[in-house]
């Protein structure tokens, strides 16, 4: 019985198929959103800099908007599937909760001194839990603030919630910056622990 259970648990993928499919669709969509978003930013920069055209997508404002609004549907529909399944299957609750501040501090220390174990990719440490849960919340904010600046008449209550049209642009930018920061850490750590990439592709 015990052996059988062990075999079954070994056969179960670290990440179920829907997580892996959603992850890679999201990866592509978010890169298009960020790249085209930078080009859109350049048309009327909020700060005293612009993004180099070589890393921005769409060549000009009109092209960038077409990319942004095409990838938007992919991002939102895929994200909705992911969040719904994450809640319904109990995966979010199992994998991401609870998050205790003292665990985050302890795991962060362990990580920075290279003492953090990665033996079980199915189990997230407290820092991972915080970052994954955090980026899901930021993703919701980036979508809602995006809606607020795309349709400030239709969704005027939402726009008001984000502090009005002009402030909502800053919220949208800040959420993008948070996602890019997450991506830098996320991709760097995945490269340091390559088996995590294999797990996200092949499931184990």
């Amino acid at each position: 019985m015990t052996a059988e259970t062990m075999t079954a648990s070994q056969d179960a993928p670290i990440h179920p198929g829907w997580v892996r499919i959603c992850h890679w669709i999201n990866a592509l969509a978010i890169l298009v959103m960020i790249g085209s978003g930078w080009q859109i930013f350049n048309a009327s920069p909020l700060f005293d800099f612009t993004f180099p055209r070589s890393i921005a997508l769409g060549q000009w404002l009109g092209g960038a908007i077409q990319w942004h609004f095409a990838a938007m549907w992919v991002l939102v529909i895929n994200g909705a599937v992911y969040v719904t399944l994450g809640i319904v299957t109990g995966r979010f609750r199992r994998k991401l909760l609870p998050i205790y501040p003292r665990d985050v501090v302890a795991d962060a220390k362990a990580a920075l001194t290279f003492k953090l174990a990665h033996d079980d990719l199915a189990h997230y440490n407290a820092v991972q839990k915080l970052l994954y849960a955090g980026v899901i919340i930021v993703a919701v904010i980036v979508v809602l603030s995006g809606l607020a600046i795309w349709k400030p008449v239709q969704f005027q209550e939402l726009t008001a919630l984000f502090g009005g049209y002009d402030f909502a642009r800053y919220v949208h930018f800040a959420a993008m910056a948070a996602i890019v920061s997450f991506l830098v850490v996320h991709v760097a750590l995945a490269l340091i622990v390559p088996k995590s990439i294999r797990a996200m592709i092949a499931g184990r």
């Binding site: 890169l31 298009v32 790249g35 048309a43 055209r53 070589s54 890393i55 921005a56 997508l57 769409g58 060549q59 000009w60 404002l61 009109g62 092209g63 990319w67």
Partner: peptide, 24 residues
């Protein structure tokens, strides 16, 4: 940006540079 739009060939090529996004 606007001036660029006047020339049709330029406009039609606006997506070719898309490949420069390394991730794509």
């Amino acid at each position: 940006d606007a001036g660029k739009l006047m020339q049709d060939p330029m406009r039609r090529s606006f997506l070719r540079g898309a490949a420069s996004l390394g991730a794509l």
